[in-house]
Design a protein around this nucleic acid. Structure first.
Length: 265
DNA sequence: TTCCTGCGTG
DNA sequence: CACGCGGGAA
């Protein structure tokens, strides 16, 4: 596979580094679209270390897309609990149903039709599982490419720069950039001394911090999470809400919203 | 506090 | 384009 790399010297060095230093992650079975879909869904806004045990439990429970398609909401959310963004689990199951029924889309545009699969995830699956040479642009890629370029990249310019930077197979290149971004080309305190491609980097200080999130403590999200956990364990939803000091009005409104979304029976 | 391999919706 | 959406680790 490394022989197929046709990119610049920078890409040659990057892929060589990846060959030696790649993180050993349980979903890295090249060409398996189901493992890729599940892992990418879990990894949206969630750290690798937290995903690993959840991923293994998930795959043990539903080894195939057909099995996931038939999963109960309760068991699904029970296993998902702790990952956050619970709607991702429902969208993932819905995608499994669509795939079990009609087969896998293999193009970026086809994959993006699946619920919960946006531009990044579609490109990641297409490149990793179906051999499509497209960049999978997430915050890691955005930051790393911006540093290569020397100034912040976004939008169409980022897309063009990424397309012009990839090596084939892009699935390998995407994961190499991802690992570099996670372990060396970090948001703050990048380890440039350990970076295999620092000589091709224009400015390792380039970084645009993400938009600040609202406080979690006391938030609606905190209440939603507590109510979903109570529901999954067949507990008392109002008791769970009151334990957070919330009014019955807020609790009932939130339960209604969760029910509409399919997160609570 | 920050930040994590984003996505869907208004 | 801005915002809501979970929750844990450092």
């Amino acid at each position: 596979m490394i022989e197929a790399i046709t990119g610049s010297d920078r890409n040659t060095a990057l892929i060589k580094w990846y060959g030696n230093e790649a993180r050993n992650l349980p979903w890295r079975v090249f060409g398996d679209p189901y493992l890729t879909l599940v892992s990418e869904a879990m990894l949206q806004q969630t750290q690798v270390d937290r995903v690993i045990p959840k991923f293994e439990a998930f795959i043990d429970t539903w080894p195939t897309v057909e099995g996931l398609a038939r999963a109960s909401t309760n068991q699904l959310l029970a296993i998902w609990s702790g990952l956050g963004y619970n709607s991702r689990a429902l969208r993932l199951r819905e995608s499994a149903r669509i795939i079990a029924d009609g087969g896998w889309p293999t193009s970026v545009s086809g994959l993006q039709e699946l619920p919960g699969v946006g531009p990044y995830t579609a490109a990641a699956i297409a490149s990793i599982a179906f051999g499509v040479d497209v960049p999978a642009i997430d915050t890691n890629l955005k930051r790393v490419l911006s540093r290569w370029h020397g100034e912040p990249l976004s939008g169409k310019l980022l897309e063009e720069f990424a397309v012009g930077s990839i090596a084939s197979p892009a699935g390998l290149w995407n994961q190499a950039v991802m690992d570099l971004g996670a372990t060396i080309c970090r948001p703050t305190n990048p380890a440039c001394g350990d970076c295999p491609i620092s000589r091709w980097c224009a400015d390792p200080t380039v970084y645009e911090p993400p938009v600040k999130q609202s406080r979690f403590k006391g938030s609606r999200r905190e209440l939603r999470g507590a109510l979903v956990r109570a529901s999954v364990s067949n507990g008392d939803l109002y008791a769970a809400g009151e334990a957070l000091g919330r009014s019955d009005t807020e609790i009932s409104e939130t339960i209604t919203a969760l029910r509409t979304e399919g997160l609570v029976d």
